[in-house]
């Protein structure tokens, strides 16, 4: 039986690109998983891997996710109890935090303790949103574990596409496995056990992003 990768659809925009990118990366594998875009809690509950995308405002995304009956419960059961590989993307990654401060304070999933706060680079020449290609630096842990590593010694290096005005400040710095620089270090990726998340958009990051997705699809936490 091929694996199933569930990309969670909770009304947060552009899942077409995410789906296409996951299909493209899946095609490179010997045993291609099935990529489904779904809001069905039953499918989410049974999936082998989970992807939580997200664009827009924190509060809207949070509300959209919690508005689907049984979805958060299914996600929690699968990602937290079964501990299947989970990848959050952009606001989907930010939702892992305890809370987000964007147009009010909103509770997140709280799976990786931390707060999502506005980017405030000291240099006024630095524009907000942080939009475009920036280099990602991974730490020692990420070199051998998680979606930046192919599990065989090759570590992703290069640029990824970012577009965000808020960023994830983790309570435990050990959960930040990759950073970029925008007037100071900015969290590019978080990881705790089987739960990973990227601030950048792998589905928009050309070969870098497709490699990261491929690593995620091969990852055994």
């Amino acid at each position: 039986m091929a694996e199933t990768v569930a990309i969670i659809d909770y009304g947060s925009g552009n899942l077409h690109s995410a789906h296409s990118a996951f299909v493209k990366s899946a095609e490179r594998l010997d045993h291609s998983p099935r990529i489904v875009v779904t809001d069905d809690p039953e499918i989410v509950r049974r999936a082998d891997r989970l992807v939580l995308p997200g664009v827009g405002a924190y509060g809207d995304c949070r509300a959209g996710l919690f508005a689907v009956p049984g979805l958060v419960e299914a996600l929690t059961e699968n990602a937290r109890q079964k501990a299947n590989p989970f990848l959050g993307i952009c606001v989907g990654m930010q939702l892992l935090a305890t809370k987000g401060i964007e147009k009010g304070t909103h509770q997140g999933l709280g799976w990786i303790p931390g707060t999502v706060v506005p980017l405030t680079p000291a240099d006024p020449a630095l524009k907000i949103p942080h939009m475009g290609w920036n280099e990602v630096a991974v730490n020692e842990k990420a070199r051998i574990y998680g979606p930046f590593s192919d599990g065989a010694g090759t570590v992703l290096a290069g640029h990824a596409y970012f577009v965000h005005s808020y960023h994830f400040v983790a309570d435990n710095p050990a959960h930040v496995i990759a950073t970029t620089d925008y007037g100071g270090p900015v969290t590019a990726a978080v990881l705790d056990g089987n739960i990973a998340g990227t601030q950048f958009h792998p589905e928009k990051s050309q070969h870098y992003g497709l490699d990261l997705i491929e690593n995620f699809l091969k990852w055994t936490p």
Partner: peptide, 11 residues
């Protein structure tokens, strides 16, 4: 746009 997004993984 849909066909482009299927093949191009860039903004």
């Amino acid at each position: 746009v849909a066909r482009t997004a299927e093949h191009c993984f860039m903004p």
